[in-house]
Design a protein around this nucleic acid. Structure first.
Length: 572
RNA sequence: GGGCCCAUAGUUCAAUGGAUAGAACACCAGCCUUCUAAGCUGGUUAUGCAGGUUCGAUUCCUGCUGGGCCCA
């Protein structure tokens, strides 16, 4: 509901002496029941009335004592007083509404760092990472839109056992490594994946190999000459591969942090804080007693003398605060790390007091694939690029077989395919509530109908097409608005007014799915309008009104899509 | 063994403690001489189990069952 309307009605109610204790207004379930609803439970309780009687009483009182251009009348529906708004007034308000709250000044709410993506090098980028990046990018845009200065941070794991396993595997497959040096990035990464799998399997099955690989791990930390070149080369491959994916997903980062750059400082922090008693020795390791804070104990320094990722995270936080002085850092990380992060944040309160109440975990649900057609390869890890490729194939098929698109150039088609494919994927990943697990359904996400990205983009393309065909109108004073709107027009106007509320909801919950749901509802209302209300075929004053209306719809949809990281297309 | 999360229609998802629990897919029936039918309209189907708090519970509390995860 539009804030203006809400405040207006609250004011009218207050004027007749109702609702001093803060008025809550909602939307009736059906439009025949009015535009705005006032639940009277609280009022009835205070006045010892039964809710239905109270509603009747209040509706009568309102109608008798209130004269207003926007609110035509009130009517009691059970325990609710519902208000019916004047179509023309409502449309006037909505069409003149800027979709962006003018009170939001860019960068006025302080600085937040959003840390997302955070993959390991030398590994495939799988569908879980995909959800992470798509979510992170959308959160960045939401926060910027809401008036925050946002630092995009990415913390990539470029040291550790997973790389030791990979490097050991490469040593075993040296001939293949030499052969693949000049190959495409896809093939080089395919080899890296194979080498990792080789090392990981050997690590599990053979005690002697396990020791060897641990030796590689030490060599990585010491930057041992014998592995340095292969390490740097394959690290470079990984970063190139990841950068391609970021570009495809239309995301970027202000700061790339690496485990290798915080490792040294991690050692120092733990040593310093052992002296201060924050960390304690335990069976040769150094631990933080989370159990003294209702959490659990964690190792920050191993018996072998290496800092764990716990320790590295301490050094990372120190760097992040020193470099950007954020008012908050949001870590987009899976829910399985929830308990770990609680311990980490607690330890940080000691090693870095300024971080207190400024570190936040933004968890998101697990991703699985429907059908299992793709889940069989290499364990159950699905590389992101193969999923993206498959979606693109589906979309391409639609575009290529369409007669309407015959006029498009090859370049336009390619651009459209990419935009629609990425829109399909991003929408599929963002429409489910952030913390809920989700199932990625290939058929549904590329589906041209239903609750899918392509469906939404199609609605926008149709409206854009109408606007493109219309003759531009001169500025001719006040816009004509019909006295009574068609049902489909009214629905569209009402839905348009809800955009700001959807954004506020998304920001407060840190959940882009609020926007995705809004986009779908607006598209549905738009689709119905498209079906029932001809634009170009209508007589003049109505045509002008409808063009202004659909222009507003296109504008709002594009704004919403932008917050999701999705780009609209002109034709599809 | 300790802790965290989840359970809604055949399937995938919604629902600040409030009106007849909403959509989408699938299935069935209609709608193109008219702005893109990748569309629209109508129809069928659900709150895991047992209690409790409340005028009112999908929502909050307790126990149970089933699934996921973390720590040991």
């Amino acid at each position: 509901m539009i804030r203006y309307v809400r405040d207006h009605i609250a004011g009218l109610l207050e004027a007749i002496g109702i609702g001093e204790a803060g008025i809550i207004l909602t939307t009736p379930p059906k439009k025949e029941m009015g535009d705005v609803a006032f639940p009277v439970f609280q009022y009835a309780k205070e006045h010892k009335l039964n809710p239905a009687d109270a509603a009747k009483l209040l509706a009568e009182k309102f109608n008798a004592e209130t004269e207003d251009t926007l609110v035509e009348r009130a009517e009691a529906f059970g325990p609710y007083v519902n208000f019916f708004l004047n179509d023309r007034e409502l449309a006037h308000i909505v069409l003149n509404l800027t979709e962006h709250d003018a009170s939001v000044v860019p960068d006025s709410k302080g600085t937040v760092m959003i840390e997302y993506a955070c993959p390991n090098t030398h590994k495939a980028f799988h569908i879980g990472h995909l959800r992470n990046v798509i979510l992170g990018e959308s959160l960045v845009r939401l926060h910027e839109y809401a008036g925050y200065r946002v630092i995009r941070a990415n913390y990539q794991g470029d040291v550790g056992m997973h790389i030791a396993k990979c490097l050991w595997g490469i040593e075993q497959l040296k001939d293949e490594y030499d052969a693949v040096l000049k190959a495409s990035i896809q093939d080089r990464m395919k080899f890296v994946g194979k080498a990792y799998a080789h090392g990981a399997t050997a690590f599990e099955t053979d005690k002697k190999t396990e020791e060897e690989i641990k030796g590689y791990n030490e060599m990585i930390y010491r930057k041992d000459q014998s592995i340095e070149e292969v390490y740097e080369t394959t690290r470079g491959w990984s970063l190139e591969y990841l950068e391609n994916i970021y570009k495809l997903l239309d995301t970027k980062f202000d700061r790339y942090y690496f485990e290798s750059e915080v490792f040294g400082r991690a050692v120092d922090i733990v040593h310093e804080q052992v002296v201060n008693g924050v960390f304690v020795q335990s069976e040769g390791a150094v631990i933080f007693k989370g159990s003294e804070h209702g959490l659990h104990d964690r190792v920050f320094f191993t018996t072998a003398g290496f800092p764990t990722y716990e320790a590295k995270d301490l050094a990372l936080a120190e760097k992040q605060f020193a470099e950007f002085h954020p008012d908050g850092i949001y870590h987009v990380i899976g829910p399985e790390q929830s308990d770990y992060l609680k311990v980490l944040f607690k330890a940080l309160e000691y090693t870095l007091p300024e971080s207190k109440n400024k570190e936040f975990h933004v968890p998101y649900g697990w991703v699985t694939l429907k059908g299992g057609k793709m889940s069989s390869r290499t364990g159950n890890v699905v590389p992101a690029e193969s999923l993206i490729g498959e979606v693109e194939d589906h979309i391409r098929e639609h575009i290529e077989t369409s007669e309407v698109k015959a006029t498009l150039s090859a370049e336009e088609k390619a651009g459209t395919i990419t935009k629609v494919a990425m829109g399909a994927i991003k929408y599929a990943f963002l429409k489910t509530g952030r913390t809920n697990d989700m199932v990625f359904d290939m058929e549904e996400s590329v589906s041209t109908s239903g609750d899918s990205g392509p469906y939404l983009l199609y609605i926008v393309a149709r409206f854009k097409s109408i606007i493109a065909k219309s003759t531009p109108m001169g500025v001719a004073g006040e816009l004509y608005i019909p006295e009574v709107l068609e049902s489909a027009e009214k629905g569209l106007v009402t839905k348009l007014g809800e955009f700001t509320a959807a954004v506020e909801d998304a920001v407060s919950k840190q959940d882009p799915s609020c926007i995705a749901q809004y986009q779908f509802e607006l598209a549905q209302a738009g689709s119905r309008f498209y079906q029932e209300c001809p634009v170009l075929g209508s007589p003049e004053p109505i045509q002008e009104f409808r063009i202004v209306l659909i222009s507003k719809v296109v504008h709002t949809m594009e704004r919403g899509f932008d917050l999701l990281g999705i780009t609209t297309v002109e034709h599809m």
